[in-house]
Design a protein around this nucleic acid. Structure first.
Lengths: 238, 238
DNA sequence: GTGAGATTAATTTGATCAAGTTTTTGCGTT
DNA sequence: AACGCAAAAACTTGATCAAATTAATCTCAC
């Protein structure tokens, strides 16, 4: 049920006799990170040959990684055999907001009733590093910590299918999130995590779900607002 | 936005100078059909070598197709490097019901406001063949026509992301649906399509959405009921 | 001597790579 | 501007290597 590199992932094994992780999974994880944390801009082309040179891997594993990311919405077929990082439109952003609101609220609710004391402690540790990133104005760190927080929380829900959907949605708005944060910094970003954590400690599932709902909606409205005013995202391809 | 073989797909091109469809897409489409319409039983193993013999294709395209279907939830990694058709559990069926109800209701609502007269006519034609399949007790035909109906309707919603999610959900419950229908025949199956079609003609988006919601929930409750009583799905592997 | 368990051999399957083929794209010439 | 040629990229295949499952054999206990 854990997939291979999704929202709930516990990295272990770095010793030598550990089960070797296949190349196609490494490439997948690497590409996935690049999309999720905005190392690839919306509209940018992703080529097999480019990844061969960049990663040193063979062609077959790279093809598999690209296919997989394409299925998950992180990449997009471009009719001919081109693959690009998708650009969000106003139509699709509404659907993403809808999905995040319904799915992640449900994930938070279920997580709240199953989360352990130790997991709450880890969530607080992540949130502290997230606050740090915000005050430093460190956008990449903010994106990673924010993802870590949601991933750990939702992983506790033990709902692999909902987790897959949430994963796919995060992959779709990741590149645009990076662009938005790069423009407006980390100041106006939402952080309802304190409220959520208090609710988790109080075992108030409804309150926890509500806090995460607000967190999600506020974050997505930032993206929508950035798309409405000014240039959209067409400037990032340059 | 149409992906390559998803819910909204119009097969054309069978002439010779048409753009040749790549092998990996053919294999994907073929395997996808097999999962969706229950040609593969839940729990059944899917091997690369087996598909090489069955399809005659090379190894790489088959690997890509399997990777893709795995991402979409139609297949599942089995820890070691085995891939199988997933078995539904009571936990996951609840999540599927939740997803179908929220996502497909929204799709139906948006489709209702954008569907054309010609598309309604096509929907009615499909529904007639569906009725025919039900009265004949033809389970495979029922599954295909029912899918066609939903696919055509949701395609009219012009919401590619929601469509992808709906696709993934259909792939996950497809094999179990086949088992359930094989047990209880086509008699008690839901068909609220007439109500939905009337609402579409009346341009009543809410009524159309509500009809489809009931159709979805009734169908999924059949699966849940079949899982609760008796053997679950463990008997189908034999 | 027979049977159960474990160790090892053989077969099957998956993973990776490199070479050959086809398609697309971009540039240069007419 | 249109056509054609060349370069690059994607697609497909087959071969090779590694891992896992299955089959066979061997040992030891009863």
């Amino acid at each position: 049920m854990e997939g291979t590199g999704n929202l709930a992932q516990g990295f272990e094994q770095s010793d030598e006799n550990a089960p070797r992780v296949p190349v196609h999974q490494q490439v997948y994880a690497q590409l996935r990170d690049a999309v999720l944390f905005g190392e690839l801009a919306p509209g940018q082309a992703v080529t097999i040959q480019g990844l061969i040179k960049r990663t040193g891997a063979g062609m077959t594993p790279i093809r598999e990684a690209i296919r997989r990311l394409t299925s998950e919405g992180a990449l997009e077929f471009q009719g001919n055999r081109r693959v690009v990082v998708p650009l969000l439109t106003l139509d699709t952003i509404d659907d993403l907001i809808f999905l995040r609101e319904s799915v992640e609220t449900r994930l938070a609710e279920r997580a709240a009733s199953r989360v352990t004391e130790a997991q709450i402690a880890r969530l607080e540790a992540i949130d502290a590093r997230l606050d740090d990133a915000i005050t430093r104005g460190d956008v990449p760190a903010y994106l990673r910590r924010n993802y870590d927080f949601h991933a750990l929380l939702y992983g506790a829900a033990q709902a692999p299918i909902l987790l897959d959907v949430a994963d796919s949605v995060w992959l779709r708005f990741g590149p645009s999130m990076r662009v938005v944060c790069g423009r407006m910094g980390t100041q106006n970003l939402p952080d309802n995590h304190k409220t959520a954590l208090a609710a988790l400690r109080a075992q108030d599932t409804d309150a926890a779900a509500e806090a995460m709902r607000e967190d999600v909606v506020q974050g997505m409205e930032q993206i929508r607002a950035a798309m409405l005013d000014g240039t959209g995202f067409s400037d990032v391809i340059d």
